[in-house]
Simulated scan of single mutants.
Amino acid sequence: MSNPLPSAAFQNLTPAQFAEGMRQPGAVLLDVRRPDEFAGGHLPGAINMEVTSPDFAQRVATLDPSQPIYVYCRSGARSANAAGQLNAAGFGQVHNLLGGVLDWPEQLVK
Results as ranks from 00 to 15, higher is better:
residue 72 Y to F: 11
residue 77 A to F: 08
residue 70 Y to D: 09
residue 60 V to E: 08
residue 64 D to N: 03
residue 53 S to E: 13
residue 54 P to G: 10
residue 50 E to L: 06
residue 61 A to F: 06
residue 53 S to D: 14
residue 62 T to E: 03
residue 46 A to K: 06
residue 70 Y to F: 15
residue 74 R to Y: 13
residue 59 R to D: 12
residue 69 I to D: 07
residue 71 V to I: 11
residue 52 T to F: 11
residue 70 Y to S: 06
residue 48 N to I: 04
residue 60 V to L: 14
residue 46 A to Q: 06
residue 55 D to C: 06
residue 67 Q to V: 11
residue 62 T to A: 11
residue 77 A to S: 13
residue 68 P to A: 04
residue 63 L to T: 00
residue 64 D to P: 02
residue 59 R to N: 13
residue 72 Y to D: 06
residue 71 V to K: 04
residue 76 G to S: 06
residue 46 A to L: 04
residue 51 V to D: 00
residue 70 Y to L: 12
residue 78 R to H: 15
residue 68 P to G: 01
residue 71 V to M: 05
residue 50 E to K: 08
residue 58 Q to T: 06
residue 61 A to N: 06
residue 77 A to P: 07
residue 70 Y to A: 12
residue 72 Y to H: 12
residue 59 R to I: 05
residue 47 I to P: 04
residue 78 R to G: 15
residue 49 M to N: 02
residue 57 A to T: 13
residue 59 R to E: 10
residue 75 S to C: 11
residue 63 L to N: 01
residue 74 R to N: 14
residue 70 Y to R: 06
residue 66 S to Y: 09
residue 75 S to W: 05
residue 62 T to C: 04
residue 64 D to E: 01
residue 48 N to C: 09
residue 46 A to I: 08
residue 61 A to M: 03
residue 60 V to G: 08
residue 65 P to H: 03
residue 78 R to E: 15
residue 69 I to K: 00
residue 62 T to R: 06
residue 52 T to P: 05
residue 63 L to F: 00
residue 75 S to F: 05
residue 54 P to F: 11
residue 46 A to F: 00
residue 59 R to C: 07
residue 77 A to V: 15
residue 49 M to E: 04
residue 49 M to D: 10
residue 57 A to E: 11
residue 48 N to Y: 04
residue 57 A to P: 09
residue 67 Q to M: 12
residue 70 Y to K: 09
residue 64 D to H: 03
residue 52 T to I: 09
residue 71 V to C: 11
residue 69 I to F: 03
residue 62 T to H: 03
residue 58 Q to V: 07
residue 69 I to V: 13
residue 69 I to G: 00
residue 58 Q to H: 09
residue 54 P to M: 09
residue 54 P to S: 08
residue 71 V to L: 05
residue 47 I to R: 03
residue 69 I to T: 03
residue 46 A to T: 05
residue 77 A to K: 14
residue 70 Y to Q: 08
residue 69 I to N: 03
residue 62 T to K: 10
residue 47 I to V: 05
residue 78 R to K: 15
residue 59 R to W: 05
residue 58 Q to Y: 03
residue 77 A to D: 13
residue 68 P to F: 02
residue 73 C to S: 08
residue 47 I to W: 00
residue 73 C to W: 04
residue 66 S to K: 15
residue 66 S to M: 13
residue 57 A to L: 09
residue 52 T to Q: 11
residue 72 Y to A: 05
residue 59 R to M: 14
residue 60 V to A: 14
residue 58 Q to E: 15
residue 55 D to P: 09
residue 63 L to W: 01
residue 59 R to P: 11
residue 60 V to K: 09
residue 77 A to G: 12
residue 73 C to Y: 01
residue 61 A to E: 09
residue 53 S to I: 08
residue 63 L to C: 02
residue 67 Q to Y: 10
residue 78 R to C: 15
residue 72 Y to R: 03
residue 64 D to Q: 05
residue 51 V to N: 04
residue 46 A to P: 08
residue 56 F to N: 09
residue 49 M to S: 05
residue 52 T to V: 07
residue 71 V to S: 07
residue 67 Q to I: 10
residue 63 L to V: 02
residue 75 S to T: 15
residue 54 P to I: 10
residue 71 V to G: 07
residue 59 R to V: 12
residue 46 A to Y: 03
residue 62 T to M: 07
residue 48 N to G: 04
